[in-house]
Simulated assay, not measured.
Amino acid sequence: MTSTDLHHPDNRRAFRTVRRLVLAYLGLSALTLVAAFALRDHTDLITPAVWVRGTIVLAGATVALLLTVRAARGSRGAFRRLRIVSGAMLVAIAAIIAVPGVFPVWMKIEQGLCGLALLGVAVLINGRQLRTLFAQP
């Protein structure tokens, strides 16, 4: 891969959009834990599952951001891992939304918003433009 390819305006734009979507995912994840902390005395809204899932999601969003930064700098491994991680997170979010009773409605809505951001990431990362950029020579 040449630096010219990485710095092509279309590729830079695609990675800028991916980074913004991942930052939105990270921000929503952080706000979820802030809200959980603020509402910690309301056990009907903040269940142990909210704490566990919220912490895992924040960690996953942090990893996704690190992978995005490394992929934008040309790391094939980070690009490949970002493709896998974004897809796996989408599946996990779909399961959380679908499973009745484990998570409160507000968290399912938050996870739906996170899922929309990740769907955008997955579409861009798995699109022809970026896959071609990281194709084996």
Rank of each mutant, 00 (worst) to 15 (best):
Q129I: 07
A94D: 14
L130R: 10
L26A: 15
L90H: 10
R83S: 11
A30I: 01
H7S: 06
V52A: 14
L21V: 10
W51Y: 14
I93E: 04
G77W: 14
T62I: 00
D5E: 09
L119D: 10
L65P: 01
R40N: 08
R40W: 09
L45A: 02
F15P: 04
T32P: 04
S86I: 05
Q111M: 01
F79A: 13
R81A: 08
S3M: 14
V52E: 15
I84E: 13
H8T: 13
M107F: 05
V57W: 04
V34P: 02
A38M: 00
H8E: 15
H42K: 07
P100V: 09
V52H: 13
A49Q: 09
F37A: 09
D41C: 06
T2Q: 15
L90M: 15
R19W: 13
R80P: 03
L124Q: 06
L67T: 12
A49P: 00
A94Q: 12
I109Q: 09
H42T: 08
H7K: 04
R128P: 14
W106C: 08
V57Q: 05
R12P: 14
I46H: 07
I46K: 06
R70N: 09
V18G: 03
F37G: 02
T2E: 15
L28Y: 12
L66T: 13
R70W: 13
K108E: 11
R83P: 02
I96Y: 02
R73W: 12
D5I: 07
F103A: 05
D44I: 00
G120E: 02
V18N: 02
R131M: 15
I56P: 00
R76T: 05
H42N: 12
G60H: 13
P104T: 02
P137C: 05
L28I: 08
R76D: 04
L119C: 10
F103Y: 10
Q111C: 00
